[in-house]
Each structure stands twice: as C-alpha cells, then as structure tokens.
C-alpha cells in the first residue's frame, strides 16, 4: 500500500508551505517521511534533500543530529508529546542539552527567555510547573519553545491549532507567524483547515489519496483552483464572511481506501466534472499556470458554470 505516492516539492528558508488534505490523504506521512520517522514496516523511496544532503542516505548519527538540531516538529496534541511527570522547564532544557548545541548551563539559562519568547506570562515561575498545570494553549506554546530552542532551520507543524479553542488558536497562529519570521526557517504546515492555510502560507500543496493533486502560490490556489477537489473543498466549508444562506457544495462519497484505490484519477468516483478518460488514465501533475500545478484531465477553467453542476 502506498500511503504517499510520488510526492515532489521544495520549501525555502523564510517560506511557509501548507500541506492540506483530509484524513488518509497522506499529509502526516509526508511529514514523517521528511524526518525518516515512518513507522515500521514502512519504507521510503526517492530523495529528500536537506540542502545538499539526502536525508535517506544519512547515517544514524547524522539523522539524529539532523532531527535534533536542524528540524523541529510541533504536533496537534501537546499533552501527549510532553512527559507528564517532568517539569516543563526541565523538559525544554533537556531538549536543548540532548543535542549538545548548548552546554548544560547555557541550556538552563535559555529556558526562561525561550518561554518569554513564546509569550508565556510569568515564565520564571511557570518553568516549575508540570504539563497538566498548563492550559492547552500554554502547552502548545511550551512545545513551540521546545521546538525552536535549538534554532532549527526547518519547522514542521502538524495540525498545531486543531485541538485548541478559537481564541487560543488565533494567538498560536500569530505566534507561529512571528516565530517563523524571526527564525527565517522553512515551515511546513500540515492541516485540514483551508482558512488556516490562507492565513499563514505562501504556497499550498493539496493532497488526496497519497498524491499531490494541486499545488501553487496560496493566492492562485484560493482564487483560481483548477483541480475539482480543491474547488469543491473550498466551497464545502461554511465561511465567516458568508452572506445569506447558500447551500454548501458537498463532495459525495468518502475518501478512498488506500488499499483499494480506484483506477484512473483517484478522485474520479467523487468528482462531478469527470470525463471518460478520468476512469482509466491517471492524469499527471501538470503545469496549468506558471507555478501552479494540477493533476486533472478536465481543469476547472474548462468547466462552464461549475456551480450549476454541483
């Protein structure tokens, strides 16, 4: 079974790239692959270049070094990624010291400034707290502090705001925006939330059934989506700026089982705009505009009045 199939993309320093998709689209597996953290018996083939170095060719020492010093990963649920019996401050210190970028004393001295940097009030007192004494938003801040404490150049955030309340989400979004600017890191944001992508990302990758179905600059993808999946997804979610009661565009059926993928285009059983060719031949990810790629034989620009057909 191929959870992720034939993905190619790049991320630059200072850039935030959004990887969007629903459950089972392969977005999280893509992120884990970048760190060679794919669970057994998973195998990765291809090339993952970090600068000049291929992550897949690194020795165990090199990969540990890479994961610890170059990359930070922020997960959806900070409660499960922190040790419940260790004080928050100690965990951040340990994360820094473990990768030997800082000495023990340096690491200790950096804990409070790190927590202040992610705007945890009364950081000096809070370092003595245990994770359960932090609220969800504070835990996520602490996770971000832990992640960025080694000044990584690649930050991978997997649904970093999904488990949080909206007002807390808003402040974490602002924090991520600021932190990515300060670090000048490359950021990969994995999410199901298109609005979050519109808010944070320079470029977007839309995944479906383990494939990239569309990618391009954020503005192009939102204003002029060419793949029917992207187009429908954008119209299936209620919007805060919606006026009147328009019916949502629903995508019929469910995402395919990766073990039993359909022939041809993997989206065709759910697509309202398919033609005969889609049933038998899988379209390539092809350029539809400079910088914008879509994997579709039809393309939305060739569909007259798509709203009428949905």
């Amino acid at each position: 079974m191929r959870a992720v199939d034939g993905i190619s993309f790049d991320v630059d320093r200072g850039e935030i790239v959004g990887v969007v998709g629903e459950s089972g689209s392969g977005k999280t597996m893509t992120a884990l692959s970048l760190l060679r953290l794919v669970p057994e018996p998973g195998k990765i083939t291809g090339r993952i270049l970090y600068g000049e170095n291929d992550v897949l060719e690194m020795t165990d020492d090199e990969i540990r070094e890479f994961r610890g010093n170059e990359v930070a990963m922020i997960f959806q649920d900070p409660m499960t990624s922190m040790n419940p019996v260790l004080r928050v401050g100690f965990q951040i210190e340990e994360a820094m010291a473990a990768h030997r970028r800082f000495t023990g004393q340096q690491a200790r001295d950096r804990v409070v400034p790190m927590l202040q940097r992610v705007r945890i009030p009364a950081a000096k007192e809070r370092i003595k707290d245990f994770p359960h004494q932090f609220s969800g938003g504070m835990r996520q801040r602490a996770m971000i502090a832990m992640g960025v404490s080694n000044e990584p150049s690649l930050l991978i955030a997997d649904e970093p705001t999904t488990a949080l309340d909206v007002t807390v989400q808003a402040s974490i979004i602002e924090l991520l925006r600021d932190i990515s600017r300060e670090l000048r890191a490359a950021v990969i944001l994995i999410t199901h939330n298109m609005a979050l992508v519109a808010s944070l990302c320079n470029r977007v990758i839309v995944m479906y059934a383990g494939r990239i179905v569309e990618q391009g600059p954020t503005r192009a993808i939102f204003k002029n989506p060419q793949h029917p999946y992207t187009w429908s997804l954008l119209r299936s979610m209620p919007r805060m700026d919606e006026v009147g009661k328009e019916r949502l565009v629903s995508i019929r059926g469910v995402p395919p089982d990766l073990g039993k993928l359909p022939t041809g285009c993997k989206f065709h059983p759910r697509c309202r705009f398919k033609v005969d060719r889609c049933l038998t031949e899988e379209p390539p990810l092809a350029e539809v505009d400079p910088e914008q790629l879509a994997r579709c034989w039809v393309l939305m620009k060739n569909v007259p009045n798509p709203e009428m057909q949905s």
């Binding site: 007002t167 808003a170 939330n193 298109m194 609005a195 979050l196 519109a198 700026d241």
Partner: peptide
C-alpha cells in the same frame, strides 16, 4: 479570531487577542 479561506481577507484581518 476565525480565519477566512481567502488570502486577501486574511492579510487584512486583525484578530483581537485575549
């Protein structure tokens, strides 16, 4: 606080942080 799926509107939105 709620983001909108529109990059132009998002660039202008100013969340009131509590």
């Amino acid at each position: 606080s709620v983001p909108v799926p529109d990059p132009d509107l998002e660039a202008a939105r100013k969340p009131i942080l509590l």
